[in-house]
Design a protein around this nucleic acid. Sequence first.
DNA 1: ACGTCGTATGAGGAACTGTTCATATGTGGA
DNA 2: TCCACATATGAACAGTTCCTCATACGACGT
Lengths: 134, 134
Amino acid sequence: MNSSSYDVSALVDGCAVPVVDAARVSDVLERMPPEDEVADTADVFDLLSDPNRLRLLVAMLDGELCVCDLAAVTGMSESAASHALRLLRAHRVVSARRSGRRAFYRLADGHVRMLLDLAFTHTQHTDAVHPERS
Amino acid sequence: MNSSSYDVSALVDGCAVPVVDAARVSDVLERMPPEDEVADTADVFDLLSDPNRLRLLVAMLDGELCVCDLAAVTGMSESAASHALRLLRAHRVVSARRSGRRAFYRLADGHVRMLLDLAFTHTQHTDAVHPERS
DNA sequence: ACGTCGTATGAGGAACTGTTCATATGTGGA
DNA sequence: TCCACATATGAACAGTTCCTCATACGACGT
């Protein structure tokens, strides 16, 4: 079942490709989430991959804040914060409430809250993940 | 405690900044993780924010695979896969084992495994997070 | 009505990312 | 020893990202 030399039987995208372990490869291909699921998941991670957006989201963990306070807390300019919040809102990660001329933003996605918790909990009691010397 | 007009007492980075709710702002600032923790967490999310890297990691969820099989499974060129794996290895998310001329990669970080599980579990039974019409 | 305040948005640019192509490195077989 | 194979790496380029600056917009106070 596990050949030590090449096994060219795997069909990827209907096209024969040289692989080492054809059984494992087709197994993995079966379990692989569909294209759009992978893309959506990558999008979520992408939203969380910027330090400023991350700070914005952490700031909202225990309640809504207005744009200028979010800017103050994160050290961003109000314009930059507004741009970032617009992006987060477009992806329904946060939602906005208007009160007069002020806009209050809050977390709108419990799932993202869980990801934040999990990620920070780990980072806190783990030594930083530093790139190793090449 | 909660003023409805401006409150300029908050000191952010030792510099007076106009804020609406000074109490909440300093509260949030206290809970905010330190700079390097935020950066490290953002880095982890960044590694997960690319569909191809995501597929590579999902492929390794139930065991090691060699570079050419990983390339086959993800649809990447072997060169692109190698570059991506190098990046993941540099951040200690995966580790490599060499056997002859082949290199087998595996997940090296249980934390990342949890993030993947959480993220995909959610994406699976949630309608995709689509950007809303502006 | 007018000015100001809080926020939103568009344009533009510097910096970064991920790919491909070409080439290098090292292993195993003949 | 020589060649082919599996992987690694560097350079370069297209595409993207996130900021700033300028400006627009709408709500409030006077």
